[in-house]
């Protein structure tokens, strides 16, 4: 287990390094470097000033040198400054990460609950299987941003029950919860399809196994057979799915946050890219990638704990 952990952590570090190098290259090709932007916002700058600023900020150095300087600073714990928010980048990153994790946690819990309930329904009542199938296909084909838009139109514009977006201004859990309902619902509905389909398939397979027949023969009630015997075994492929899906969960959060104007990692990445805030964009991107890969690793470990056959 320790060897596996060390290997995977090394792989994560290498991936982050590669992504940061590639993104640095790509961002070098984006329109407007910071000095160009300063020039646009201040007409009094002379060409000499611009040349001096380029030297001062190291923009006259080749891309590779700048990258090395940046990465040594980051490894020392110096995340630099955000151009857009005019504060140290770390000061924007951590609250955004917290907000995203809250959104992801609630919507993951809700989509697992609903998805597995649907899957169980489809597995136990074969006559309802087509309905579960139809719901799953509809849910996985719905664009996240469209669903968010429809929910805003229905619950915020027409009915006026919930806020259309933003973050709670008044403190207190009740107010924060009101702002969470629509984003969490959006993300949960889009994600539940995969859990419903795989849950149904896995439960169906387990319910046909010999040990289930033995349990029935012992006279166990159906409910106990389903939840105590079949479900724990069917949970293993679901955990595998969670490991594979961590990336798309984070991607979904980006869209959801942008639509509902929630201050989280996704919106931060989008705003930073749009505002030419390269440093913040890169840091946020790497943080999102790190969280995704750690979540994948956690799911892999959970899978090994659940399934004794996989334990070393």
């Amino acid at each position: 287990m320790l060897r596996l952990l060390a290997g995977r952590l090394l792989q994560i570090a290498v991936t982050l390094l590669l992504v940061s190098a590639l993104t640095w290259l790509v961002m070098g090709a984006m329109p407007g470097d910071p000095v160009d932007l300063a020039m646009l916002s201040d007409p009094h700058l002379t060409p000499e000033d611009v040349a001096r600023m380029r030297v001062l900020h190291g923009m006259d150095q080749p891309l590779a040198n700048r990258y090395l300087a940046w990465i040594t600073a980051v490894l020392r714990g110096d995340f630099g400054h955000s151009r857009l928010f005019a504060v140290p980048a770390a000061q924007v990153l951590w609250p955004a990460l917290g907000s995203t994790l809250v959104l992801l946690g609630w919507s993951l819990a809700l989509s697992l609950l609903l998805g597995l309930a649907l899957g169980a329904l489809g597995a136990v009542r074969p006559r309802a299987a087509w309905l579960v199938d139809a719901i799953a296909i509809l849910a996985q084909s719905t664009p996240t941003f469209w669903l968010g838009l429809l929910l805003i139109i229905l619950f915020a514009v027409e009915l006026g029950w919930l806020p259309a977006g933003g973050a709670a201004e008044a403190p207190g859990p009740g107010e924060a919860l009101r702002y969470l309902v629509l984003p969490v619902a959006t993300l949960a509905i889009v994600n539940l399809a995969a859990y419903a389909r795989h849950g149904q398939a896995a439960l169906q397979a387990e319910l046909g196994a010999d040990y289930v027949r033995t349990a029935r023969m012992k006279g166990l009630p159906e409910r106990a057979i389903l939840w105590r015997h079949a479900f724990p075994n069917a949970a293993i492929p679901i955990v595998t799915l969670l490991a594979l899906d961590a990336g798309s969960l984070v991607s979904g959060a980006l869209v959801t946050e942008t639509i509902f104007a929630r201050p989280g990692m996704g919106k931060l990445i989008y705003d930073a890219i749009m505002g030419n805030d390269y440093n913040l964009a890169l840091l946020a991107l790497l943080l999102a990638a790190l969280v995704t890969m750690l979540a994948t690793l956690a799911a892999d470990i959970a899978q090994r704990l659940l399934d004794p056959r996989l334990a070393p």
Partner: peptide, 21 residues
């Protein structure tokens, strides 16, 4: 590696690149 990364943030970064260069 590509599968483990969150694709949309990366797509956003790539799509913002100035291809006219």
């Amino acid at each position: 590696g590509l599968l483990a990364l969150p694709s949309l943030p990366l797509l956003v970064v790539l799509a913002a690149v100035d291809t006219s260069r």
